[in-house]
Amino acid sequence: MTRVIRVRVNDQAHERQVEVRRTLADFLREDLDLTGTHLGCEHGVCGACTVLLEGEPVRACLLLAVQADGARVTTVEGLAAGGRLHPLQEAFRAHHALQCGYCTPGILLTAAAFLAEHPRPAREQIREMLAGTLCRCTGYQFIVDAVAAAAQAMSP
């Protein structure tokens, strides 16, 4: 069974026919070639596939593509504006907040939404936010540093 859906991804409109069983994550990766959204578990635990749906973080593996019909989605590819890295991306590089990079897109998007709500977060709040995404390489410490630094850089 298939349906035609219209989705706005990173400010670009797409119309595609999809199988109803296709998840949003597979739709982004397979149909739109946006392979920055990674699949780590396909059951909502690891968080690598986290994208923004109408500005809020969601697991792209736990949403059917048909459910995103008419919605606005932001993926990691849409984070850098006009070729310039987002302050979070800059901070992640400066603080060595990534190693293999597989969990990084999900963390960046979760953190972007978080900083919009918490412009001056405490480190404990940052850790609680990060707990929704598993990283197996970094031990999280430099990610906490990077998010704190990005918050500083972004605060007016």
Partner: peptide, 13 residues
């Protein structure tokens, strides 16, 4: 780092 941060790294999948 930049390619990972932009979602442009290329993993097998």
């Amino acid at each position: 780092d930049p390619r990972y941060l932009r979602g442009e790294a290329r993993y097998v999948d």
